[in-house]
Structures are given as structure tokens and as C-alpha cells.
Simulated scan of single mutants.
Amino acid sequence: MRIAHRQSKYHQYEKLSRGLYLTEHRRCYNDIIKYCNKLVYKGVLDALRGDPKTIVPWGTMSFYEVFSPSQSLGGSRANSGEAKAIVQWLSDEREAILDYARQQDKKLIQLSDAEVLKKSVGIVTPFSKQAKVIEKLLKQQGIRGLTVGTVHKLQGDECLLVLFSSVYGENNKASGKFYDRGSNMLNVAVSRAKDSFVVFGHPDVFGVGAEGSPSGMLRRELRTFNAKELA
């Protein structure tokens, strides 16, 4: 992509890389794509979907507090407590997700619950080990077929609801965060969510630090739910 930008003879926006841009955005609710517009596109996107006409049960941009530590696993990282919290939340919210999805798209009424859930929910994490932990726990709950992985699995795709497992715990306060090494990871993760983007993470770690970092910018857009509300 960098090579293509350099080779393009067009430079549509001086504040962005060279090339022509599709600036009309219709996938995400405006509250969601607003973050990507600030982070990557310097405000040139034209958000055209608008705001929700009905209540999104989980909010359009939300943060659920999880206090468990992460574990280093062979060059990758996982957080079993956070994985359990995500799977428990998904299990608890399953019926609400099915109802909401079918209200938004009448074509889903004819599909099985498993197919509706598969089409409606994606789970993204910076670490492949965490994805495997989450997938294992989902299978134990009888939930199969969801897209679970790093951002590459969802690139070019979309879901009504995207859950982001940030992984880092209190034991990682002082370390640099993988999702802050560039803007691409969080930009892709957020922009896959049509109706709701939900971050699971430690409240003293995710987005804490440099305000101009991708996670710092995102944290300011999220409505926080505490552990009691999560339960």
C-alpha cells in the first residue's frame, strides 16, 4: 500500500498520503467512524449513515472493565480472565444480540440462531494466542463459527457488533502496547463495527498514557461500564 501511495500521480488531500480516496462512509454509525476519521483520515470522511434510530443495547462505543493480568505465551500474549469475561458477556447477551440483529435485518429472521450470531458478532484481539483462548472457551459454551482473530481476519468484513479484547493487564502498565505501534490495528478493528464497538480491558491500562496514541484517542470516545454493571 505504501508503494502504491508513493507511485500515484494523484494527491487528492495534501494532509493524507498520495492517491484518490472514497470519502463517503455508510457502514458505521457516525459515533463509530468519527474515531477513525480523527485517527487516520484527518476529517475528510463524510459520515453518511447517521445516528441510531433505536437504542443500541450495548452503546455504539463502549468499554467494559476487566481486572485480570495477562500472560506471556511463546512470543505472544493472552489474558485468560479477560477471555472468560468476553465469553460470559457474549453468553449473557446472546438473546439480546439475536433479537437486535433480526430487528435490524429482516432477512436474518429465516436463519438459525447460530447463523445469526455468526453474521452479527466478530471478536478482534492484537494477539493470536488470545484468539485461541477465546475460541476454546466459546466452543465450551456451544458457540461456534464466530470470526475470532487479529484484525487481518476482519479486514474487508463487517459485523453489527465487534468485541475488542485488549489483553494487557495491570502487570503491563509500564510496557509499550502493540495496538499503539501504528494506527492501522485500531482503525481496522473499529471500522468493522456497524452498530457497536466494545472494548474489554483494564481501566488503568487501556488508553492510559500518551493522549495522542491510538488507544488514548479511542478511550476518550468510549462509555465505561464497571464490573458491577457487567455482571
Rank of each mutant, 00 (worst) to 15 (best):
D180R: 01
Q103T: 13
R27F: 02
A174S: 14
S196P: 05
L186R: 03
L48I: 10
A210I: 12
R223P: 01
G122W: 08
V66N: 09
S215G: 04
N79L: 08
T54H: 07
V162W: 08
E158T: 12
G176A: 13
D46V: 13
R6H: 11
K42C: 09
L222D: 07
Y21F: 10
E158R: 12
V66L: 07
T54G: 02
Y21E: 05
M1I: 10
K177Y: 11
R223K: 12
R2Y: 12
P203E: 06
F206S: 00
Q71L: 06
A4P: 05
A4R: 12
Y13V: 00
R6C: 07
S165W: 02
Q88M: 08
S213M: 02
S17L: 14
I32V: 12
A101N: 07
K228W: 11
A114E: 14
A189K: 09
E221T: 15
G145V: 06
G74N: 12
S70T: 05
L45F: 11
Y100C: 00
E95N: 11
V198L: 14
L218V: 05
H5D: 12
R18F: 06
G176F: 10
R181P: 02
E82W: 09
V208R: 15
I55D: 10
K84I: 05
D99G: 13
R192K: 09
S62A: 15
A231P: 05
I55C: 05
R181F: 11
T224I: 13
E93P: 00
E158I: 05
T147L: 06
S70Y: 11
G149Y: 03
Q71S: 08
D46N: 15
G201M: 04
S175E: 13
H152L: 10
A96N: 13
V124H: 05
G145P: 11
K84D: 10
L90I: 11
I109C: 07
L163G: 03
G81S: 06
G142S: 08
V162E: 01
K107I: 03
P203Y: 05
K136E: 05
M61V: 06
A231I: 12
L20C: 12
V40H: 04
G122F: 13
R219F: 04
H152G: 00
V190R: 07
R220H: 08
L117P: 05
S175C: 03
R223N: 01
K129F: 00
A227P: 06
A78C: 14
K153E: 07
E24F: 10
D31H: 15
Q155M: 03
L73G: 04
K15H: 15
A227Q: 14
N79W: 09
I134H: 09
A174D: 14
F178M: 06
Q88W: 12
N172Y: 10
E158M: 03
